[in-house]
Structures are given as structure tokens and as C-alpha cells.
Design a protein around this nucleic acid. Sequence first.
DNA 1: CCAGCGACTTGATGGATATCAAGTGATTCA
DNA 2: TGAATCACTTGATATCCATCAAGTCGCTGG
Lengths: 243, 243
Amino acid sequence: MTATDPLSGPDKEQALKELAGTTLFGSLPAGILETLLPHVALITLSEGGTLFSQGERARNVYVLSSGIIALSRASGDAERVVALIEPGETFAEAVMFLRSQQYPVSAKALEASRLWAIDAEHFTQMLSLSTDACLSLIQCMTGHLIEQLVDIERLTLHTATSRFIAYLLAHTEREAGGSSIVHLKVPKSVIASRLSIVPATLSRTLAKLSREGLLEVYDSDILITDIEGLQARASEVSPQKVV
Amino acid sequence: MTATDPLSGPDKEQALKELAGTTLFGSLPAGILETLLPHVALITLSEGGTLFSQGERARNVYVLSSGIIALSRASGDAERVVALIEPGETFAEAVMFLRSQQYPVSAKALEASRLWAIDAEHFTQMLSLSTDACLSLIQCMTGHLIEQLVDIERLTLHTATSRFIAYLLAHTEREAGGSSIVHLKVPKSVIASRLSIVPATLSRTLAKLSREGLLEVYDSDILITDIEGLQARASEVSPQKVV
DNA sequence: CCAGCGACTTGATGGATATCAAGTGATTCA
DNA sequence: TGAATCACTTGATATCCATCAAGTCGCTGG
């Protein structure tokens, strides 16, 4: 992991442009974002590199510029990927509001990555000066809350198969024809962890769906041949009605 | 469900006092909270009454004064309790920042309850006038994010038994002696749903722990006889190491 | 070029927990 | 007062998915 600080000219422009493209920083009144720039650093990670570890003192808020970051949470000797961050997304936005002041997850690069690291203290300072910044952060956190709620819903109410299909459908780019290709950008073992499935089961799931003629598997490329069929199975629940 | 608006004298005082006791409203600069009072209504629900339903247009933010509220999320024909609200807690705080403007869960009273309903629009308005209010909300949402993260961790990494023990331990009031009593304030079926267990399994779990001499069950009162033994089993994970 | 390793697949088996079903008490209500 | 209902318990069985264990294939490095 390498970090530069302060940013030099061209990086500075790039940072400004990329931050402005996020929900978190995109709707700030002119000038506010610039005041933050002196406290932004460029970080580069090589594949497999660790950005921070669970429990570590939280110092920065991040924007991913390129690459992929996996956020994972460990408990005892078990660990699970809880989120996959793609370019243009922010993460660890509310880290300085945690009682513990510690990152609640670990962040690791799944491929070589570039990130902008914003100093948490100065970010907080900016929040206290701008309601617009606060509202953006709230907006952003609301999104995360809903995502987590949906995650919980899937984990508790849906089967491994329907969870995987939901993942697949969420990652298919719309294509004109009746069939479309989804390229898996991370190893299947990571997707499995993200969905709380064991890799062996994910493999079997893929084989099953393939046998059923819903999709075809070519390594990390999945050809979807029957999107309606998949959609139908995605909403299957493992019943358990209550209250 | 009955609602009054505007509040009369004594209710007004009560509302002011109770709102001031929450994280969300407690640290507002003097005077700000008062401006909100005209937009606060008192709502009473009888046992089993519905406050709002999933998908309904979101109009209010709530503070629970007395009683118990279950927040649950449905998907298909399955449903799960995702949170149990106790007096003094706020909920649906960020509801007006949702794209859909709809409640993502349903809220039902498990016993007769009183609540303060704050008009969402005026609450938002107050946020845009006070950074302190924003920061309180952010603080509050951060708490919810961590709670959900821990919930997910438990659901995916721990067994039904250890989830139940964690619930039990989180609800034991410290007692001097080597043993303490936990009174379950909601039906066991609701706790089961909250923990994503089926009632029959919860019942068996209780029987098992009782046979092992870790606790004794007297209907809704659980006598904990071996807290260390329970703590040891609470951290059991269903292994699944990854990445 | 082959050894070793990592990512994935596939098979055999087991275990945790859901499902289905039949109880038991306690409470409500006609 | 008896019937109905509810909350819970307990038993028998089923199912999903994890575990354990061998593969295969492609890649890297000596």
C-alpha cells in the first residue's frame, strides 16, 4: 500500500472530478469540496493488499477510483464478505461516528486498486459546517441501511439458489437479445462468501441451473438463456410465516 | 389507533421531556425541539394494532413512549421480525430519505402502546436548519448500521442456539448473585422470528440448555444458572472461513 | 518441463434445523 | 361450563446445505 499526501496537480483534478461524481460529495455547494482536497490522499493497493483491518483505528473515509474492494467481517475463526465495492462508490463514510472509533470490517483489494482517502477528522469538520454535506451523508447511509435490510431478508427468507440468482440478475447489464452475458468480476469463492454459501454449494447450484437450461457457464462468464425462468426462481422463499 | 393533534398542555410537556431523552433529539440546541412540537401527535395503539404497513407512504418519524413495537419485513408469503422497539427508542428516523418514500417494514404493537409521531416533512425541515440535528441523526443511523451488521454476522456465522443465548445475555439485567432472571417481554414465537428460528426449534433449544443445567425455564422467566457456560456457547460459530 | 498450488468441480455423507403433526395447559368467550 | 383458541412443547421425518475428500484444469516458478 502506498499513499501520497498532499496530491500533486493532475491527481488533484482527478480527485475533484471523481469525488464530485459520488452521491456523498456530488451535491455539495460550490467551494466546499475544494476545502477538503488538501486532506485527500491517493492510495494504491496491489491485488490482495489490505487497506484496513477490522478493529483498527478508523482514520479515513474512502472513495474507490479503480479496482475492487471486499469488505469482510470476522467473528471467531469464521469470516464473511459483507460488501463488494466498485469504482465510484464510497465506503466507511460514518466511521467517525462509531463509539469505538474502529473499523467494524476489514477492507482488502481483490485486484490492484486506486482509492481516495479522505481524512475523517476534516470530513467531520466539513459536516459541521454544511448541512448539505450532512444531508448527503444521511442519504448515503439510508441507502446502506436498506441494502443491509434486503441482505438480511435474503439470508433469512430465501434459499441459496434464489440468493445466487438475485445476485446474478442484479449484475446483468441489460442486453437487447433474449439472452445476456454476466461476467463475474470476482472469484466465485468471494461471491459464495458474500451470499453466505460454501463454494462447493455455489458450484452445484450453477451446475443445477445449467442442467435445467436456465443458463450456461463458461468459467467467469454466465450466459443467461431464460431470464423469466430465473426471475421466477429468485423469489422463492423458504417459508416461515410469523407473528 | 387514535391520534391527537395538536397536543394539549400536559401531553406537550410529556412529549418534550420524552423526546429530549432520546439520542436523536436529546442534544439539540435549546429552542429547536420546541419548534417541532406543533408537529408532534400522540398515538395510542391497542395490543395487536398496526401503526403502519410495509410499502405504505411514509409520513412520520416515531418515538415509543410505552409498550412494545415489532418491526417486521415481509417477502412473498414469508415474514420476519427485524427489530423490537422498547420505550425511549426512536424508529423510522430516515424514512423521508428513501427514494420510494415508503416504509420498508411494518410496525405492529405487541402490547398496548403510546407513541409520539413527528411529521416527517417538518423533521426534514428542522434538519436543514440545524447541523446538530443532522449529526444526531447520523449518530443514530450509525448505531442502526452496526446493529444490523452484528445481526447479519449472527445469522450467517452462528448457530440457532448461540443466537438465542446472545439474545438472552443481551437482555439480562445485571444481578448480584451468581444467577439472574431474564423476563421475556414478548412471546417466544416473536423472539424466534427475530432470531430467524422456527418456534419449535426455539422450544427445543430451551429444553436442551435446561437439560444441560445452564438455565431453568418458568414460562416467560428464564433463570440463568451458569452464565459462564452460556457465554462459552454464545461464541460458537458454524465455521466457514473464506477469502 | 514438471511440481506444486489455487480455483473450481463433483461425490458421499452428516448434521442442523425446518416441516408436519399431535399433544398439553391456559385463557377466552358464548 | 364447555368449546374454541392460543402459545407452547414434543415427536417423527425430511431437506437443505455444510463437511470431508478426491479429483481436474490452468498457471507459476524452479
